[in-house]
Amino acid sequence: HAATELTPEQAAALKPYDRIVITGRFNAIGDAVSAVSRRADEEGAASFYVVDTSEFGNSGNWRVVADVYKA
């Protein structure tokens, strides 16, 4: 099962156990969220919340930071 994305309210009520950072070329924010979901799932997380997204220069590469939560 894939890790689910939390709302800001849900994330605020929970304590993350880790923070992950992924970088890559994403065509849309949805693609980045899917990549975070896969990584969170690999780490055994039940859910995640994207904290920050930023573009690296003009290369089209993105850096996505997310907190991950157990259950």
Rank of each mutant, 00 (worst) to 15 (best):
H1R: 09
A2H: 14
A2Q: 13
A2K: 14
A2C: 14
A3G: 03
A3E: 01
A3K: 03
A3L: 07
A3F: 05
T4C: 14
T4P: 04
T4W: 10
L6M: 06
T7K: 07
P8S: 14
P8Y: 15
P8I: 10
E9K: 08
E9A: 11
E9D: 10
E9T: 09
Q10P: 02
Q10L: 07
Q10C: 14
A11V: 04
A11K: 03
A11Q: 03
A12S: 11
A12C: 11
A13C: 14
A13R: 14
A13T: 13
A13G: 11
L14I: 06
L14G: 05
K15Q: 12
P16H: 03
P16R: 04
Y17E: 01
Y17N: 02
D18S: 13
D18R: 13
D18Y: 09
D18F: 09
R19E: 01
R19F: 04
I20T: 00
I20F: 05
I22K: 00
I22W: 02
T23I: 15
T23Y: 15
T23V: 14
T23D: 05
T23N: 07
T23E: 13
G24I: 08
G24R: 00
G24D: 04
R25N: 08
R25Y: 13
F26D: 01
F26W: 09
F26K: 02
F26A: 00
F26C: 07
N27L: 11
A28R: 11
A28H: 14
A28C: 13
A28F: 09
A28G: 15
A28N: 15
I29Q: 08
I29Y: 14
I29K: 11
G30E: 15
G30F: 09
G30Y: 10
G30S: 14
G30V: 11
D31K: 04
D31W: 12
A32N: 00
A32W: 10
V33C: 09
V33L: 14
S34E: 13
S34M: 14
S34L: 15
S34I: 14
S34A: 15
A35Y: 09
A35K: 03
A35M: 08
A35D: 04
A35Q: 06
V36E: 03
S37H: 09
S37L: 09
S37E: 06
R38T: 10
R38E: 09
R38N: 08
R39H: 06
R39E: 04
R39Q: 08
R39A: 11
R39I: 12
A40G: 03
A40K: 02
A40Q: 03
A40E: 05
D41H: 15
D41M: 15
D41L: 15
E42H: 08
E43L: 15
E43W: 13
E43Y: 15
E43Q: 12
E43F: 14
G44T: 04
G44Y: 04
G44E: 05
G44A: 03
G44M: 05
A46V: 12
A46Q: 11
S47M: 13
S47A: 15
S47K: 04
S47P: 02
S47E: 03
F48L: 00
F48Q: 00
Y49D: 01
V50Y: 02
V50E: 02
V50D: 01
V50K: 01
V51P: 03
V51D: 00
D52G: 09
T53D: 02
T53Y: 15
S54P: 01
S54Q: 15
S54E: 14
S54G: 08
E55C: 08
E55M: 11
E55V: 12
E55F: 14
F56T: 08
F56K: 06
F56D: 14
G57I: 06
G57E: 10
N58Y: 10
N58M: 11
S59A: 11
S59C: 09
S59M: 10
S59Q: 10
S59H: 08
S59F: 09
G60K: 08
G60D: 06
N61Y: 15
W62D: 00
W62Q: 03
W62S: 02
R63Q: 11
R63G: 03
V64I: 14
V64P: 00
V64R: 05
V64T: 01
V65F: 05
V65W: 04
A66G: 01
D67W: 14
V68H: 00
V68Y: 06
Y69T: 00
Y69K: 03
Y69I: 03
K70G: 09
K70Q: 07
K70P: 06
